[in-house]
């Protein structure tokens, strides 16, 4: 039966392996049911709103500020991860130190640790009586329940994206290039700046974009530490939840559509960056 269905698909190359029709059909059906139809429900609901209504929702000061906080702090967190993630990769790939394998494994903690757990741990850590917060309090620096706390949470969840994207590319870097640069008289700094950095740059940018994309939509780890003051430390995903709880479905839907569009654009950019990184000879995933 599977082969009979398969013969109808003229867009595929012939093969002796059976089951294309069955597996392709199931894949497409399941994809549509779980992902595509629900996502289109969002756009359908948004398109029911009049343009004026949409404009009123999106120009609302609280909405604008929440979007500004989400995108602005995500950008800042991704930039911090670009610098420190790059440094961590350099140290992990190039230097030897005790417990290197443990440190390497620890990088994945933000992937594996549930966001709610990370959220309450970071909040307690940076609260005024917390391990780090109590050291910062005398300096007048408050982290928990301020935008700075949001930044800390977003740095935490974004770090592995930069490290895991750049790591294989740096490990694959042809060491002879650095020898050549050095033998031609370049200083170590020049070699890193003009030989190493341009090679890993596409991977660094890909990691940066992935960390940014993840941070924009992040919810669980942020809401505990943010304090969630409207207009000060309220992120866009939280505003969606609040509007939903107030039964203001139109508002929730409109904000969610903007965020979904942003993640589509980011996905496209990340795709392009990955192609660029691969064409540069890296193996980034």
């Amino acid at each position: 039966m599977a082969t009979a269905t398969a013969s109808r698909f003229t867009f595929r190359k012939p093969s002796v392996i059976p089951g294309f029709g069955l597996t392709f059909g199931l894949t497409l059906t399941w994809l549509c049911l779980i992902v595509l139809l629900p996502l289109s429900a969002l756009f359908l609901k948004t398109s029911e709103l009049s343009f004026d209504r949409l404009m009123v929702i999106m120009s609302n000061a609280r909405t604008l500020h929440a979007l500004q906080i989400s995108f602005g702090l995500s950008l800042a967190a991704a930039a911090i991860n670009l610098v420190f993630g790059g440094l961590v990769v350099w140290v992990l790939v190039r230097y030897d130190f005790p417990f290197k394998r443990v440190v390497d494994a620890v990088i994945d903690i933000p992937f594996a640790l549930p966001t709610a757990v990370a959220g309450i741990a970071l909040t307690t850590l940076y609260a005024e009586n917390g391990w780090i917060g109590s050291l910062l309090a005398p300096l007048g620096v408050q982290v928990s329940f301020t935008p700075l706390g949001i930044l800390v949470a977003l740095v935490f969840i974004g770090l592995p994206f930069v490290v895991r994207t750049v790591q294989p590319v740096l490990a694959d870097l042809d060491a002879e290039l650095e020898d050549a640069a050095a033998s031609l008289g370049a200083t170590r700094g020049q070699t890193i700046w003009r030989v190493v950095l341009p090679t890993i740059w596409p991977a660094l940018l890909t990691g940066f974009a992935m960390a940014f994309a993840r941070a924009v939509g992040e919810y669980g780890s942020v809401i505990f530490i943010a304090g969630n003051l409207p207009g000060v430390s309220e992120i866009a995903p939280l505003l969606i939840v609040i509007r939903l709880e107030e039964f203001r479905y139109a508002d929730a839907t409109a904000i969610a559509s903007v965020m979904l569009l942003a993640s589509f654009v980011l996905l496209f950019i990340i795709n392009r960056l990955q192609h660029w990184a691969e064409s540069r000879g890296g193996r980034g995933r």
Binding site: L42, E218, Y219, G220, L238, S263
Partner: peptide, 18 residues
Amino acid sequence: DLPFSVSPVVAGLIYVLL
């Protein structure tokens, strides 16, 4: 791969809308 880039909150919302 699309669900990776959708905010968890939006993922929940689409099912509420449906």
